[in-house]
């Protein structure tokens, strides 16, 4: 009898540890990023680091300003949202409300596939199709640019936008729509004036999720953006926060490597902010 109780207690303890594992991982990641990210910032100076416009980590007198990366990430994400959200949103409304069941089933499969394609495959196709096309169309010397990256990111965030928006729109009670239809509104009017507003927190969550995906993407962007630490401009080669870390990590050391950790810390802070926003909208959606 006593023995049974002890065993139950031990098992409870094991599960408690497993339950706390996610919390442990978040703490581990946070602590590692803070500890390894702070030294370079103190050496370089917070202001010079965040607002310095010149990144020359391997120069004789190196300079570590990451404003180009921050702005590139912000502009790139904004651009991707600007293109991806409308397309994703209208697709979601069409699929959840108007589409023939067969079309819907096919498109749901297509969207899942889009979500499952590895980012290096996007990068590869982007490198060989998009980059040359951009060079031709806009008559610029190199198509590997912020613009190409925006297009690739817009495509990559589409599946999350479509899926999350669809879930939100489909969760709107049918009674709302019936009431609107009974007042003489047509189906299309009802969808956009009743269903969509009722699902707005969920759609907002979809957009924020898209922002998170876009700002965190590394490999695909690395393959199409040219990877030069310029201040961002639409048709120039640029470097993102993520690609700044990825491109120099393998050969860096000393202050240069520490600065890369600091970049990761900045990226992490962006992500935490986005997560908090996402949670806010998801909670609202639940209520």
């Amino acid at each position: 009898m006593k023995k049974n109780k002890m065993i139950e207690r031990a098992i409870h303890g094991v599960f408690l540890i497993l339950g706390l594992l996610t919390v442990g991982c978040v703490l581990l990641i946070t602590i590692y990023l803070v500890i390894s990210g702070i030294p370079a910032i103190t050496k370089i100076g917070l202001f010079d680091f965040l607002f310095g416009t010149k990144w020359a980590s391997t120069a004789d007198t190196p300079s570590y300003g990451i404003l180009p990366f921050i702005l590139t990430s912000v502009y790139g994400t904004a651009g991707a949202i600007l293109i991806g959200v409308p397309i994703g949103f209208f697709t979601a409304v069409y699929l959840s409300k108007l589409a023939d069941p067969k079309v819907k089933a096919f498109m749901e499969g297509a969207v899942s596939l889009l979500a499952g394609i590895p980012s290096v495959v996007y990068g590869l196709v982007g490198m060989l199709v998009l980059v040359p096309a951009v060079r031709e169309i806009f008559d610029i010397p190199d198509g590997a640019s912020l613009f190409s990256a925006i297009i690739v990111l817009a495509i990559m965030i589409l599946p999350s936008i479509i899926k999350v928006s669809m879930t939100a729109i489909e969760a709107v009670p049918k009674e709302y729509e019936d009431a609107s239809l009974a007042l003489g509104a047509t189906p299309v009017e009802t969808y956009f004036r009743v269903s969509v507003p009722a699902a707005k927190s969920g759609i907002a969550a979809a957009v924020v999720l898209g922002v998170g995906r876009a700002i965190g993407e590394a490999m695909a962007v690395m393959m199409v953006s040219g990877n030069v630490p310029n201040m961002p401009s639409l048709f120039q080669s640029v470097r993102f926060l993520t690609t700044a870390v990825a491109s120099e990590m393998s050969y860096s050391s000393g202050l240069q490597q520490q600065a890369l950790f600091s970049i990761a810390l900045v990226l992490f802070l962006f992500i935490m902010l986005i997560n908090a926003t996402l949670n806010f909208f998801l909670k609202k959606e639940k209520d």
Binding site: V26, G216, I274
Partner: peptide, 12 residues
């Protein structure tokens, strides 16, 4: 955890 970009996972 599910929102953290993979590049950060790689680094940590």
């Amino acid at each position: 955890l599910s929102g953290i970009p993979s590049i950060i996972y790689g680094l940590v």
